[in-house]
Design a binder for these strands. Structure first.
Lengths: 222, 222
DNA sequence: GAATAATTGGGGAAAAAACCCTTTTTGAAT
DNA sequence: ATTCAAAAAGGGTTTTTTCCCCAATTATTC
């Protein structure tokens, strides 16, 4: 059975020109897929979005300036939940679960070979999800090791307060100053911190900082 | 005057297949340059190196597994100092000076457009060095702001003690535990810390951790 | 509406981190 | 050998962090 339908439109959002163009070229070389939008960041993507170029699959970089991957994911799952999001990521850490909850359908490592890229796109179309072997492995490992520790099935889910707190933890502010900035009592900060110590299995502020860095809660601007 | 000589051989060391192939294709499109070696990491590069494919310019990624950019730089400037090293980097931070001291001739950001890549290669050949405008700016800024504060002309140079201390600072060990591990008195740890506070212009342990992360003193394993 | 759970806040204490200033040790230079 | 400077180590203090246990205030559920 030959593929005679119109190609599936794919969107690309990544601020690295080189990676983006390389991906675009690879995708354009597949008969079944075409590239309908290319953007530097989430904001630009949303601006360019219209009924003509609405992609069925969106390949999205997570760490971008302007409007980052998480914000973009949130916007898309609210406004266009039919778009299937495939995340371009170097992180195969716990934040995966956050992303899945946020509507992400799959993960690609940036050094994906063309063959697997095609496979990923097809999986997303057919099954609705895609996961590379390496990342599938991590996910299983996560479910296994985290076990029944917190929340539903052990995944580490941070709420908005904890995330904005974590961002501030990775600065030189004292907890008192963080409390002022967050407009809450220093005691509540204590509670946030202690809850995170438990959740993230760390014992000190440095542990929180390293978690935040490793999981992209704070972005490192080189 | 036409360019009729043999093309200048360029080596490529980067563990991201996509970026590496994209760069290779771009370089191959330039008449004056050819790609003579492509490798995943420093070790592979050294293994592949022979008199036939000896590159004049090496484009090198700094953060790789196996043998990373710094180790590779060191090996090259000892064994083949004639090879001009162009670093592919996202860091435009102070660690630049370390790299320059290590023999690096220039810096490229990963999202370099093809035109500038060509320009960079030509600059390296003609002047021996290359620096993108953005990074040149950072360097000037660095020299200006750091002024006459430390060392020769203000560059932040960390000695071995400070580097191994910084690595431990980014763990959940207390200073007392760090002192034990480093086999020195806790007071000396105080001295190290206070010296780094001054040098790096930070006020707390979190500041040290963030510096270590941003400058690759500690490596984040995703 | 009452019971229950989660979030927010408080007092106080022990440990760690940060900041003083001073002394000893070490290493390099003349 | 002596001098000089840097590195290492100490004593003591203040601030911050961490860790208790407990009370008030919201949400949630029955």
């Amino acid at each position: 059975m030959q593929q005679t339908q119109a190609p599936v439109k794919v969107g690309l959002v990544d601020d690295h020109i080189l990676i983006r163009d390389a991906l675009a070229n690879v995708i354009r070389s597949f008969d079944e897929f075409s590239v309908s939008i290319v953007a530097d960041n989430g904001k630009e993507f949303i601006d360019k979005l219209n009924t003509g170029n609405m992609p069925e699959i969106l390949i999205l970089d997570m760490n971008m300036p302007e409007m980052d991957g998480h914000a973009t994911t949130r916007w898309i799952s609210q406004n266009h939940p039919e778009i299937k999001i495939l995340v371009l990521t170097m992180y195969d850490a716990e934040s995966l679960i956050h992303m899945i909850k946020g509507g992400v359908r799959g993960f690609l490592k940036k050094d994906v070979p063309p063959g697997e890229l095609k496979h990923a796109l097809q999986c997303i179309l057919e099954n609705g999800t895609y996961c590379s072997h390496t990342i599938t492995g991590r996910l299983f490992n996560l479910m296994k090791t985290q076990g029944t520790k917190n929340s539903a099935w052990g995944a580490i889910i941070l709420n908005d307060n904890e995330i904005s707190f974590l961002k501030l933890v990775a600065t030189e502010m004292t907890y008192k100053e963080i409390a002022q900035k967050m407009q809450i009592s220093p005691r509540t900060i204590d509670n946030y911190r202690d809850a995170l110590f438990l959740k993230l299995n760390v014992k000190s502020r440095v542990g929180l900082v390293m978690y935040a860095v490793k999981n992209g809660v704070v972005t490192i601007n080189y």
